[in-house]
Each structure stands twice: as C-alpha cells, then as structure tokens.
Design a protein around this nucleic acid. Structure first.
Lengths: 334, 334
DNA sequence: CTGAAAGCGCTTACAG
DNA sequence: CTGAAAGCGCTTACAG
C-alpha cells in the first residue's frame, strides 16, 4: 500500500504539498499532474485512518437498529446509505441484539469505531449507552420513536393521526366492530392505540375492550391474537394491525382459518408496502414513508457534522403517514 | 475524549504498559486495577483508528450489495452482522448503485476506509474494482454468484439442483404445461433455467419455448411476463419463477387477473420466505438458506483475516436450497 | 505556492 | 513486568 512518502519519492514534492493536493488546496497544475500520475502508478489511496486520526473526524456514522430482521427498518437503510454516500460518509450497521458476555454493547462498539454520530431506532437496552455518548457530544438522530433522556434530533411520524386514518376508513365503510391488534411495549404503538380510541369516540363507536389486543410485536403473537378474536361471541367485522409483524401474524391466522378477506373480515395493516400489492385482494394499510424518514434522518445527521451547527438546538421532524387503499376492506353499509 | 496520556497522568504508568493492558498482556494486578479505575473515571475508550494505523488492520469488513432494496440480500445482512460482531469485527454497508460523477465507486469507497476485506454480491459494475483490490491482496468473499476473474472465496448454491426441485414437484402433481419466468441477465438465473430444462427432459416433458420468459429481474417485468403467459392459446397450468422479484410480479398479475391460485394456476416461487406463509394459499417455493449463506460467508472472511490463512488457496462452499411445500400447487393428476 | 517540523493516539521492538 | 523512543500515514500551523 503506497503512502505519501512514495509519492514524495516519485515527485520530489513535500508531504505537506501532497496533503494539500488531496484536500483540495491550491497546487501548481504541473505538480498536481505529477502527483496524480504517481498516485496512478502506485495505485495510491489516502489512508482514511491516518487522516481521521489527525482531523478527529471519521466521516462515518453508525446506524443502530433493534435487529436486522424487520423489513421495515431494513428498508430505511437504503435511503440513508444513498444520502450519506453522496456526501462521502460511510455507514456502519449494528444490530442491538443481546449478546454473549464480555462483548461490547452496540453503542460502545460504534463509539470505539469513532463514528461521528449515530442514527438509531433506539431500544431500551441501547438508551443508557446513547445517553452516555450524547452527553460526550456525539450527535444522535433517533427514528421511529425517541430515546428517553437522550439529547438527539428526532424523526417521527404522527402516530395518532396515522392510526386515526385507518379507523376513519373502516368507519366510512360501515364497520363498527373493529378489532385492534397492538402492543403496549412501544411508545409508538401506544400512540396508535390512542389514535384509534380517539377516532372511534369521534365517530360515536363504542370502544369494546375485548376487541383490543396488546401483545409483543411478533408474527406469532399477532397470529394468536387474531385467532382469539375469531373465537369471540360477536366476531369483529374488521381488524386493524398497528405493526407489520402483527399484521403478518393476523394474515397468517386468517389464511389458516379459511375466512375470506374482505367478505368475512376486513383488514387494514401498517407498514407492509411489499405485501400490499401482491396479495389478492390487495391490502389496505397505513404506510410510513421510509424514503422520507431515511432522507430526513440522514440530513439531520449530515447537518450536525458541520462544525457550525454541531451545537445548535435539537430538531424534531414530524412526518405524516399515508393511507394506501386496497381491496381488503369490504363496504358493509346496508 | 480521553487518551492514554490522561491515564498515564492519573496512574503514573507508561504508555507502553497501558497499551499492554488493553492488548491482553501481563500487567501487575494492582496496575490493571489502577488503569481500569482511571479509564472508568475518564470514560476512556481506546481510539480504534490509532490502533489500526499502527497495526494495519481495521477489524472491519465491507459488505457490498447490488442495492439495498432486495429483501433477499438484506436478509443475509443480519447473519453476517451477528457473526462478525461476535468477533468484534464491524461491518460497513455499501450499495453498488450508479452515482453522480466524481463520487468514489463502491469498492474504492470501501477500500479507502481500509476495510480488511469485502463480502460482496458482485455486480458487473463492481467487478473491475474487486479484481483490483483482490490483486493487491484484499480478501474477497462472493455470495450468490462469482465475480469474473476475481480471486475470492465463494458461497453459492447448486442452482440447477434448486430449480430441478421445483419442476420435480410440479411434475409429481401432474403438471406438464409449466411456464418459466427467468432471466438471462445473471449467471444464477441461467443455471436455474438449465436445471429446469434438464429436469423437464428427465421427466419426458417437452420444452415449449413460448412458456419460457427471460426478462430483467424486476417486479414490473415479472408482472408483464405473467400477463403474456395468460394470453397464450394453450395456457400453462403452472408457473415457476426463478427469482423473488419475478415471483412478486407474477403474483401481482395473477391477483389482478382474478385467476384462482392454485385451481387455475399453480405457483412455485424462489426466495420469498416472508411471503410464503402469509398468503392464502401458502406459497410453494425454492428457498436459499440465508442464515447458512451469511454464516459461511462471514466464516470464510473471518478465516482470511487470520494472518496464517491469508495466503491459503481459495475455498468454494456449495450450499443446497430447500423446497418449501405450500398450497399454491394443485394436484391435477387425473 | 511550498516545505520542515510537530503532532494525532496508539503499538512495537528493545532495554532493563 | 515496565518504560523510553521510534514510528504508523496523514494533517496542521508556521515560515518562507
């Protein structure tokens, strides 16, 4: 691996001049050409670590996700990567899974890599670590939900509003017996439940607690919850799942039960864009704009990396979800 | 950010001793405790870049994917991340999209970050770059398909065999008019087509060229191809899609056409594990074991990072796909 | 515009 | 087991 010294030996220029060339400073055209030619011959590439060491910036950011199996979270990666790379910033990916003893926890792992900042969908496990590095001045951007007590820029959606859209759509089609598959294990899902309750009240639809399920956000839990709903004396006519995993579970249970969607059960999902269009019937759902989330999160981070804004007050970007119409909702107005 | 010097000032020990402590050497217990205590007080974290600079290893590997939108490729990330982090190796993710002029191409971008190696699903665009860094001694592991002329360890599946399984299943259920949605734009898909042809021949089923489609591997192309199949004089009774995107497209077209799966059209997909179980009927498909692919790829790379094996001959791991049974194939034996 | 020198934070032989 | 010194490859003031 060639270094500045090799280029110096080839060109006779000083290290300072070569450095200046690679940092966009003014260098005589002839010297610039000489450096380029030597670099080409030696297939030279400036060592990013050495640069970083002195400049104390790595031009890399960590992206921390609860795990790497949620296609919703994974789909945000694409947008972040693109945006960051346009600015020559690299992206270290880290899942926040529990791990064997003695291994660095995710945030520490990233911090030891000297990332310039962390974009995170924060878990409870990661929060103390984030609080810690944030206090030491590392820029943090949270997505999806905020991290308790962490100084950070935030990108969120209006979850109450998003959930209300689903209820509104169902109510407009005559549904009054609406099951909710949700969870109280995440602030976002609690907000969505609030939105559901508020919109039901606004439409004069009584809230029936047996129609409301709170479980872990897994496919298995969603499947079991749906199965329980199907056993109710007075079966709901529609189900709204406030999370993609729960939605997949509910669809699985419905498929197994042989009930026809939407004739015997209407369905509205949340964040299942890939699925939405390829099932028959197509699925109605509330969808976050992952492209916008990614873009806003990356931009907030890139902004923080500018020395001038490093200290400016935190920002919070609130995005709106969209409603995708689909064939999975029956019109049951008589 | 505290450094060794701060710890030296607190403990009175030399930099060499502190370094030794952090690299697992023998240090008097009292000194070790003093260093730990000081590090705690200062919230010290060794600077990975400085370490790397001297040791010439970064303990990071680049993962290069054609793009970050294929859920099949994304699902491999989880396993790689886990495996690498267990060994305290970090992962830089990079998509190989075409980009604006003047920006580093993906491989150069990773190489400038001094990754110790690259795990890639190689595209044609990336191949020259990979060849280049491989020639300079960087370990490369390819997944899914090999990179032309690149010295690399490989993880692949037996694609002919995988495709043959689908045909065998369909033939066993009495199908003889089998449509193939494939592509000639990737070596893997060409192999799958070969597997299909061979298995058809083995079962004495004539190959009908109008049943064979080769398109780009996109949802739109799959949808259009399926629509064309539905217009044929003698409609096929089954369709096998040798790629997930094509499968999604085909399912979309079938959903739009109103044809019932499997009564009017049987379906076998490829690599759609998320979808397989949540549709009604469930989908039969050939599935690569992403967990195994990830694990093998990560292990091949970790092995290469050991100085002793760095120069050993390249390895090729051939995995077998599995067949997932589903309700999307009708038994039409009379 | 160019260069000599010091320094970034750590590691690496080499003495002791 | 510990320490003084040199060095990794680059950047950063400071002269010239």
């Amino acid at each position: 691996m060639a270094t500045y010294k090799d280029i110096r030996d080839e060109t006779g220029l000083s290290l300072a001049t070569i450095s200046k060339f690679y940092n966009g400073g003014n260098v005589l055209p002839a010297n610039a050409r000489a450096i380029e030619a030597a670099a080409e011959r030696l297939s030279f590439r400036p060592n990013a670590f050495a640069r970083n060491l002195r400049s104390r910036r790595t031009r890399s950011v960590g992206v921390l996700l609860p795990d790497l199996t949620s296609d919703f979270h994974l789909s945000i990666l694409a947008g972040i990567e693109r945006r960051l790379r346009d600015h020559r910033v690299s992206m270290l990916i880290c899942a926040d899974h529990p791990h064997e003893e003695g291994l660095d926890e995710a945030v520490e792992f990233l911090a030891a890599r000297m990332v310039d900042g962390i974009i995170a969908v924060p878990t409870e496990r990661a929060t103390p670590g984030l609080r810690n590095v944030a206090a030491q001045g590392m820029p943090i951007v949270t997505m999806d939900w905020p991290a308790d007590g962490v100084v950070a820029d935030e990108v969120v959606i209006d979850n109450e509003e998003a959930a209300a859209m689903a209820i509104q759509h169902l109510a407009d089609h005559g549904h009054r017996r609406i099951a909710l598959l949700g969870s109280d294990l995440a602030a976002t899902l609690r907000s969505r439940e609030r939105g559901v309750r508020r919109q039901l009240a606004a439409r004069g639809i009584p809230v029936r607690e047996e129609y409301i399920s709170r479980t872990p956000m897994t496919v298995a839990a969603g499947r079991a919850a749906m199965q329980r709903m199907l056993l109710l004396e007075e079966r709901p006519t529609a189900v709204f799942c406030t999370n993609n995993m729960l939605g997949v579970g509910a669809l699985t249970a419905l498929a197994e039960s042989g009930l026809k969607v939407p004739d015997e059960m209407s369905f509205v999902g949340f964040d299942m864009p890939l699925l939405a269009r390829m099932t028959s019937p197509s699925l109605a759902m509330v969808a976050q704009r992952v492209d916008l989330i990614a873009r806003e999160a990356a931009d907030l981070m890139l902004r923080r990396l500018e020395p001038e804004v490093a200290q400016s007050p935190q920002r919070k970007v609130v995005l709106h979800a969209e409603f995708l119409f689909g064939g999975s909702v029956a019109d049951i107005r008589s």
